[in-house]
Design a protein around this nucleic acid. Structure first.
Length: 297
DNA sequence: CTGCACGCCTGCCCGC
DNA sequence: TGCGGGCAGGCGTGCA
């Protein structure tokens, strides 16, 4: 799924489409995605004007003028696509002719300017919910999220404290949205490579001296990905259908068996499975677990 | 509390 | 050409 850079790219592209537009009609084509849609979703959306489109972690937040916020998560395969209807044939008609719904087009929002925003999600791991705007931060899915990795509160001091005593791997810890919110499998792999940290290293045993570098590599990999419009693999598309470009810059993700690109490093990128998910890493650049006896030899 | 396996879905790719 | 297995950018749940 889209991780933070992909979701933020969607947000930036969708913002000018959605903000200050009224949702004239909402077409809900099935009762649920990962969770049931909220009660009366179509009715609660119709007639609402979008005041602002925000993001928290991988959640998009559309504030509506009626005091509710539409919360959207893209799951693994969710896409938001913008369609323009053809001009009405009959003068004065508000009817627009949109393309036929494609497979997995689950929700369509028709805006007052004749634009349609479609939520398409083959795997249906995505979700939509409505909640009072002033209660979004305490929504059950958002309440326990850790700091934004690009925000000020995500610091070396914070991360050191958050990792202290953790026995799970640093890979698993960085995927834990309660520790830092918005990273996913790709960017964790890339950040650990850039920081030279072994993915199996217990989180609580990452040397404190390496933490500032890790914070910096996390931020940098996200910023660069953002600049490239995210990464496109199978499902993710920018709203205009264009693809992101960061996948061209992967150092380890999806590169098992290929040579490491670090100058002077001839090693092949490895793939292991950690808590059911692929981890890609360079055994030479990402130093193995501390070798405890070495100083004693 | 922590850590981890599982399940939710569909689609695609690979090997036979 | 068909079919089974493995894989996929996430995350909540339930268990030890």
């Amino acid at each position: 799924m889209p991780e933070l850079p992909e979701v933020e790219t969607v947000r930036r592209e969708l913002e000018p489409v959605l903000v200050d537009r009224m949702i004239a009609r909402a077409d809900i084509r099935r009762p649920d995605l990962r969770f049931p849609f909220p009660d009366q979703m179509a009715g609660r959306l119709s007639g609402q004007t979008v005041l602002r489109l925000g993001r928290r972690s991988k959640y998009l937040l559309a504030d509506l003028d009626g005091g509710e916020t539409l919360i959207i998560h893209l799951g693994m395969s969710g896409r938001l696509l913008v369609q323009q209807g053809t001009a009405p044939v009959v003068a004065g008609s508000f009817h627009h002719n949109f393309p036929m719904p494609e497979k997995h087009d689950h929700v369509a929002l028709d805006l007052d300017d004749g634009t349609r925003v479609v939520f398409n999600d083959a795997r249906r791991f995505g979700m939509m919910d409505l909640c009072a705007t002033d209660a979004v931060a305490s929504h059950r899915l958002l309440a326990n999220l850790g700091p934004e990795p690009l925000g000020n509160t995500f610091s070396s001091g914070y991360l050191e404290t958050a990792l202290a005593g953790r026995k799970s791997s640093i890979k698993a810890a960085l995927l834990d949205q309660r520790i830092v919110a918005g990273l996913g499998n790709i960017y964790v792999c890339e950040a650990l490579f850039d920081a030279g940290i072994h993915p199996l290293q217990p989180a609580g045993q990452v040397p404190p001296a390496k933490i500032p570098r890790l914070v910096e590599t996390i931020r940098t990999v996200l910023r660069v990905a953002l600049k490239d419009g995210g990464s496109t693999l199978r499902d993710y598309r920018r709203i205009d259908g264009e693809i992101g470009g960061f996948q061209e810059r992967f150092r380890v993700y999806g590169r098992a068996g290929q040579p490491c690109q670090t100058p002077g490093c001839a090693n092949e990128i490895s793939r292991i499975v950690q808590s059911g998910r692929s981890t890609f890493w360079c055994p030479s650049c990402q130093k193995p677990l501390e070798t405890p006896g070495e100083a004693d030899i």
